[in-house]
Amino acid sequence: MTEALLEVTDLKKHYPVRAGVLRRQVGTVHAVDGVSFALGIGETLGLVGESGCGKSTVARSVLRLVEPTSGQIRLRGEDITHLSKTELRPHRRSMQIVFQDPFASLNPRMTAGDIVGEPIAVHGLASGKALEARVAKLFEQVGLRPDQMRNFPHQFSGGQRQRICIARALALEPRLIVCDEPVSALDVSIQAQVINLLIDLQRQHGFSYLFIAHDLAVVAHISHRVAVMYLGRIVEIADKDELFRNPRHPYTQALLASVPIANPHAKKIAPLVDGDVPSPVNPPSGCAFHTRCRFAMERCKTERPALVDAGVGHQVACLLNEGTGRSQ
């Protein structure tokens, strides 16, 4: 693997659940429950999982928009987990985020140019004419016309707004861009434009993406490596090709089998799992997936499988065949 830009070790984020008049704690949401991964320079790590699996919380914790309960986040070798707001400020320049909703992530009362220029102004990197020139260049980079700088967000389409968000993220020349479902709110034909833009920008600038999505196809397309999350934990992580060709965890298999394929001759949808994702408030004991797993054994209810290497950098957390996840 290449040199690590970001290393996350045993990240946990628990939220207390309070109820009643006295606001007594009645439970704990295990939003993220021990997540570790590393992200290389120029690499894209896809993080997939269904709603409530904790993928967005991981993203926000990495950026310290959410304070992790425990664990460690290292950016370029430096531990940023416990830095104060002022200490964190220089690091903010090297990590940026693109959100899902291109409508809510732009201030409706600011012009597109001001929105993109704001990070530069806040960090005092340029002002006046120089700032304007930089913003104009950013607009061109993301495929917008510099004369659109004076327009307000509502004058742009969804795809164009997402381009503005990307330009804002690029403004500080970051090394890491966290993309939290950046295309799931967009139309199919616009999705492809934004994905292509993200790929082109990475080739030009060599930054890394932590790419969060629920759409396996999108993740498969953009990522070098993919991690699958279920109820706050990574259950499988591998190189993209390896993961999609040879999924080992029963959950990954079910996830892949559930995606409707755009070919009427391909096999019909086969729901490989029953039931719903259990609540993260009191996640099941042992392997959290055992309640829905086709291969669940007695051991799975009590023993929590660790993420172990199954060869070629393919890690899987499953007790089947002693950690290889193979059913036969």
């Binding site: 199919v188 034909s189 999705q191 196809a217 498969a220 090709d241 892949l256 394929i261």
Partner: peptide
Amino acid sequence: LMASIPAVPAS
């Protein structure tokens, strides 16, 4: 439209 959707698996 058909060409613009990413496919799974993408091996």
